[in-house]
Amino acid sequence: MTELTFPAVLRRGLPRARYIALAVRLAAAAAIAIYALTTPGFLTLLSANALFTAISFVGCVAVGMTFITLTGNIMSLAIGATVSASALIFLACLSLGILPAILVALLFGVVITGAQGFLVGHLRANPILVSVAALSLLLGGAAFVTGGHHIYPSGAGLEIFKDRFAGIPIDAWCFFTTVAVGQFILSWTRIGRLMTMVGSNVRAATAAGVSTTATVTAAYVIAGACASISGILLAARYGSGDMEIGVGYDYTAIAAVLVGGTGIAGGSGSTLRTLVGVIVISVIEVVLLLRGFSEQLQYLITGLLVLCVIMLHTLGERR
């Protein structure tokens, strides 16, 4: 009577599914590490800190995306465009001086993304649809203003972004700082706790007297600020910008968030986990590149990876 068919086991949820999920994750990490370290050229990249620079841009976006996912709103498809637009605005405003340019770009990201958050939080609008609308607005607006041209910096002072501090590039410092600040917000501030509550169960949070509007808006504001930071770093690194610069960042970012282990349903997650996710995804991309895989194949493998991770998650969450 006790014998079980295989589908029956799956249906009931494995009692030790969580441990299995953890074991699979550790094994995967080990496999990736070994594969990476045996790839010619990888160690050189590590020592040259080039890897750090490479992960910083998308890393900042992913930290911001963590907040959107955590509050139960899955992701924003407009984040990549926000990165590009922030880069353009930063470059365009450089004539005002570097600090004002940074502030204007940040303000832009905060307002454009915060507005999405307000709509999602206050009207309970579908977050994906809102972000699609925002994406159209951004693309249309940018095309209107720039006429589709590249923008080149109208001032100087970008050299400081190419500096190093304690041997680590400024971009990487910025990324690690956003991770740390993000984690601080989640663990040590009231608004961070409220985000977890809202993401875990909106109705329960409302009944407990939490303002969903303020909480969700705050999460999107942080996401917007992170996107702008990424845009500023990109603009400074490449010295020019167009609306293509941030394309695909939203997808890579959500992949990193999920691979890191933040739950897609909301209510659980951290920016430290996202840091791990960013590292895993970037290492895989770099290794595939070094081993001579084509770009298309890289996308394919990243896609498969995200798929596996999501399946692993659902297995781990069943009881």
Partner: peptide, 14 residues
């Protein structure tokens, strides 16, 4: 205290 404990009363996943 809500009548719908799972949906509104408490945070099941916290």
């Amino acid at each position: 205290i809500s009548e719908d404990r799972a949906g509104e009363g408490i945070f099941l996943r916290l």
